[in-house]
């Protein structure tokens, strides 16, 4: 092998970079952690199904914001026919009151930083 003094370190750097997640996870030892959500359920049913809410809640909240802010419409008609007030602080936070134990669980896990609290006052959390 020619130029081994340059090529072998190069290969070592390549392997270290491309196996970064492996040794990073091993070093941190937090790979088995997953989000655990706590809900103080005042209601039995969310405004939409759990499966829908899990992946679409951000779109729903965005739609709510546009409806309320731009169209002055505060009533949301759910797919099951029930009506809800479109409000993050008053409707959502009624059940999902603990931001750190609900919202932040998945958001921190996924590295998502929503800008809800740039405008909304963050409710006081019950411990």
């Amino acid at each position: 092998m020619y130029d081994a003094g340059k090529i072998i370190p190069g290969l070592v750097i390549f392997l270290c970079l491309f196996t970064f997640p492996f040794w990073y996870n091993v070093a941190n030892g937090k790979a088995s952690q997953r989000p655990e959500l706590v809900i103080d359920a005042a209601e039995k049913q969310c405004v939409e199904s759990k499966e829908f809410m899990r992946i679409m809640h951000m779109d729903l909240l965005n739609q709510w914001r546009d409806e309320v802010v731009r169209n002055d419409n505060r009533v949301y008609l759910s797919t099951d026919g029930s009506k809800h007030t479109m409000s993050l602080s008053n409707t959502c936070m009624k059940c999902h009151a603990n931001r750190t134990q609900f919202c932040d669980q998945c958001h921190d896990y996924m590295g998502v930083t929503p800008y809800c609290w740039d405008c909304h006052i963050q409710p006081r959390e019950s411990k």
Binding site: F22, A31, R54, M56, D59, M110
Partner: peptide, 20 residues
């Protein structure tokens, strides 16, 4: 709207990357 459930995706990916 054909979104993936990201928490599940991450569980799978982290599982792969930690040999579990």
């Amino acid at each position: 709207p054909v979104k993936a459930d990201l928490v599940g995706v991450k569980e799978l990916a982290v599982g792969l990357m930690s040999f579990h």
